[in-house]
């Protein structure tokens, strides 16, 4: 009915379409997890502003597609299991 290929009223009809937006490209430093040290306390998970911490069975992993490299996880990790390294 409309010749314009947009949804009436700018409604976004699906949730979390921002997943297309890979903000990992913003990163200048990357967090690296030492899984030996990680006790899976999940503090990094709750504090990550970018929902970029993946919960695994025994430890966490970083979702580099979205991690912007802020370093909060490394800062808040009580076991110092995460270190920030320069992006190559």
């Amino acid at each position: 009915m409309s010749k314009y290929d947009v949804v009436m009223g700018a409604v976004i009809t699906k949730p979390r379409t921002s997943l297309e937006n890979k903000t990992g490209s913003w990163r200048t430093r990357r967090p690296v997890v030492d899984v030996e040290k990680c006790v899976n306390c999940l503090l990094c998970w709750i504090y990550c502003p970018d929902s970029a911490i993946i919960r695994l069975e025994d430890h966490i992993a970083i979702n580099y597609d979205y991690c912007k490299g802020c370093g909060i996880c490394a800062e808040e990790c009580p076991r110092k299991a995460i270190t920030m390294v320069e992006e190559g």
């Binding site: 009915m1 409309s2 314009y4 947009v6 009436m8 700018a10 409604v11 976004i12 699906k14 949730p15």
Partner: peptide, 24 residues
């Protein structure tokens, strides 16, 4: 039950389309 987003903002490549659609 259907999580939709209302009131998104639009960059120039979309904005005019919404306004012209409204005009239609």
């Amino acid at each position: 039950k259907q999580p939709m987003t209302f009131g998104a903002w639009a960059m120039p490549n979309y904005y005019y389309k919404f306004k012209l659609q409204q005009q239609e």
